[in-house]
């Protein structure tokens, strides 16, 4: 293990370390802690300049209440859910199939197709922006959640295929060969042999894609514009325009917007990290 385990060092250093970690954490999260404090302050504190002092009263309930009941925020949150969940399902389903095909079969062009997915996943969004916006307009899907979902599924399939193909390649190939010897049809091999083994990959990808799509801002701005279809990342800017300089509400709104992926991360931490660090270990 590196660095040297703390248990093997002096008593004094052990105590220092134990104290140092929480201090470092507070420093690290300071900008976020500041926003959390803002979000429970009353409006009066901002007009009197009491930015960093003790809140003159605790207004967390009323601030968050106004975010939830006095603004478009719930609508944006719902939009985000309706965009994110279908995207996760679509992208994971498509990439299970592409990953299976690229991971199991040998054919000419296999690696080429695989690299097409990988390279496509890395391109800057701007090179797609004008044509995709046009395409969406032409299909009559501009400013709809469907338009956004379809594009997200297609784009995320790149990353998901990379992930799934590498995962399937690491599975024991003998299983598939044995099934073939038995004369099992290919789609049955996919459904009954490979898919059950892919559960951890599916879980990891689902959490990752959920976070990526929930946090997407660029495509939300390019493909939607109103409260009826915008997700929360884009909605928060209109929310802030509505409550300009009302820092207590803007902070509360930001925290609400940030919370779902955070909750997802804490609930599915193991899968999340397994997904993110794919390829970081040989």
């Amino acid at each position: 293990m590196f660095p040297k385990p703390i248990q093997n060092s002096s008593r004094a250093w052990q105590t220092t370390y134990q104290a140092l970690v929480p201090v470092a954490l507070i420093m690290w999260l300071l900008p976020l802690i500041a926003v959390a404090i803002f979000s429970i302050k009353p409006e009066a504190d901002f007009t009197t300049g009491n930015y960093w002092g003790i809140p003159s009263s605790f207004e967390g309930a009323s601030n968050y209440g106004r975010v939830f009941f006095g603004s478009d925020m719930p609508r944006y949150l719902l939009n985000s859910v309706l965009i994110t969940v279908p995207t996760v399902i679509g992208a994971v389903a498509l990439s299970c199939m592409t990953g299976f095909a690229l991971g199991v079969y040998k054919f000419r062009g296999n690696l080429l197709l695989f690299f097409m997915f990988v390279a496509g996943n890395f391109v800057p969004f701007q090179i797609l922006m004008v044509p995709v916006r046009d395409l969406t307009l032409d299909m009559g899907l501009y400013n709809t959640k469907t338009g956004l979902v379809l594009f997200h599924i297609a784009f995320q399939t790149g990353f998901c295929t990379l992930f799934m193909r590498n995962f399937i390649r690491a599975l024991p190939f003998e299983l598939i060969e044995a099934a073939r010897v038995e004369g099992v049809a290919e789609w049955r091999i996919f459904w009954f042999v490979v898919l059950p083994l892919m559960k951890p990959a599916i879980a990891a990808l689902s959490v990752l894609i959920f976070t990526f799509i929930w946090n997407d801002y660029f495509w939300a701005v390019v493909l939607t514009q109103g409260a009826e279809s915008q997700p929360v990342t884009a909605g928060i800017t209109s929310f802030n325009a509505q409550y300009r300089a009302a820092y207590h509400l803007m902070s509360a709104g930001s925290i609400v917007a940030a919370l779902p992926p955070v909750a997802m991360f804490f609930l599915m931490q193991r899968h999340f990290i397994a997904g993110l660090t794919l390829g970081a270990v040989k």
Binding site: M97, T98, I127, P131
Partner: peptide, 29 residues
Amino acid sequence: NRQTLAPLLFLAPGVIFFLFYVIFPILQS
């Protein structure tokens, strides 16, 4: 030919989607 057909069918939806929304738009740009 199922060893040939199977990957083709498994790949088709993903590849078509990806070509339509990612690869062609690059060329169009």
